[in-house]
Design a protein around this nucleic acid. Structure first.
Lengths: 224, 224
DNA sequence: TGTACATCAGTGAACGCGCGTTCACTGATGTAC
DNA sequence: TGTACATCAGTGAACGCGCGTTCACTGATGTAC
């Protein structure tokens, strides 16, 4: 029966721990993030953290949720800031927001979109936070008069229609498929840049990204 | 002054070690791959491996090179097997070959295209092996009459033109940019499927992949 | 074909490290009267 | 406002583990005569 004040202190302290963990994550990456390292860098005994997090996995999960939320917020800010723009510019801005977020915290990006951590299974808790990015995309596409796509090319049963209708209502199955393809392509671009696969072929990553995003806008049929 | 016979034995043993390491990689993933684990599973003392690999990183590097080569070979086989097909079908086959390879050995895929291993820098040795995949793409696109793209959209200095001309000669800057975008998009699709980001929205990953690949063929302008 | 010897392959103990987690504990903090 | 006490936050030692790497060593193997 924890009292309100105690609960509040706990929450504040847990936040401080997460903040420290985020710092270490940003500096050293996810795989070398340990409870002991966090405790050490806060001047605490490692056992003290167990008062706030059940295990290392619990801390990791909360970092993942935070990262998804942070990225989601960045996306939502971009969507709101571009409310008056033409769809193509909004799309480019959103993609740029994702790229900027990734460049600013590459290790957090890797935590979300890189190799899954072995032995760690993301619990359902993360889903809500993870959905904010696709929802931001949907918000832009929702009002844009997308070029029509041929539904025949997408057999029934390919997609989870209910989920996609909820996110991107009023669009055909083919458009849903294109949206998914485009969505993953944006992360393909960012991952390749961040993980070094464009070294030797792209000279100016930012400009290239802009060009590539324009290509992807064509792909999903955002009007010029 | 190692004698030929000794050298040969060394090479055979080194191969056996790599084979065992590949097995462990496939089973447990890259981050839990240790020299000790490999030695243990071969019934050797861990110190014995140092006769064949200078360090853990050296073993890892050779696994990476092998994985790139393996994927590269799979791609080249696809390119050769589809020699008589129309470009669109060849493109789809190549993408499918990449996806199949990734599904068959997800941990190796993660090693190549997932989060870079912290503290590990891939040496230049890996570059040749890594180039085989883009070269396979180029082999298909080389003969295909790609729809022309507008060069004005790609400012000079965006790409490393020399490298791209070497891989995909006779094509415009805009096509080079499109090719890079498409290339990374294919891996974006595969990564999203493998790393679980399509869970909840894609019901039949294989069929979806085919649809998405058709979209990407449009993107780079492979004629229908 | 047989023997002597240099080189090789592999051993096993050891070093020092960091990790997650548990546990009995000591002060400090907040609460109830 | 003061005191008694329950709950709390944090300690530090310990357990058992796995890791990369080194080193002096012992048999086995291949070679040269």
């Amino acid at each position: 029966m924890a009292s309100p004040k105690v609960e509040q202190n706990r929450a504040i302290k847990a936040e401080a721990i997460k903040a420290e963990a985020r710092l270490l994550l940003a500096r050293d990456g996810a795989s070398s993030l340990s409870l002991r390292a966090v405790a050490r860098s806060m001047g605490l005994a490692s056992s003290a953290l167990y008062r706030y997090f059940e295990s290392r996995d619990a801390l990791l999960t909360s970092l993942i949720v935070d990262a998804y939320d942070d990225l989601g917020e960045a996306c939502e800010r971009s969507v709101q800031a571009s409310a008056a723009w033409v769809p193509r510019a909004r799309f480019a801005a959103l993609c740029g927001a994702i790229r900027n977020w990734a460049l600013a915290q590459p290790h957090a990006y890797g935590l979300l979109f890189g190799t899954p951590i072995p032995g760690y299974a993301a619990p359902a808790t993360t889903i809500d936070a993870a959905t904010r990015v696709p929802l931001a995309f949907a918000a832009i596409l929702h009002d844009a008069p997308l070029e029509s796509a041929n539904d025949d090319a997408v057999p029934a049963g390919t997609l989870v229609d209910a989920a996609l209708v909820a996110i991107l209502p009023g669009q055909s199955r083919a458009t849903h498929a294109r949206a998914l393809c485009t969505w993953s392509s944006v992360f393909g671009l960012v991952s390749f840049e961040l993980f070094g696969h464009f070294v030797g072929s792209v000279a100016d990553p930012e400009r290239f990204f802009d060009v590539a995003v324009a290509n992807l806008a064509d792909l999903i049929g955002v009007p010029r």
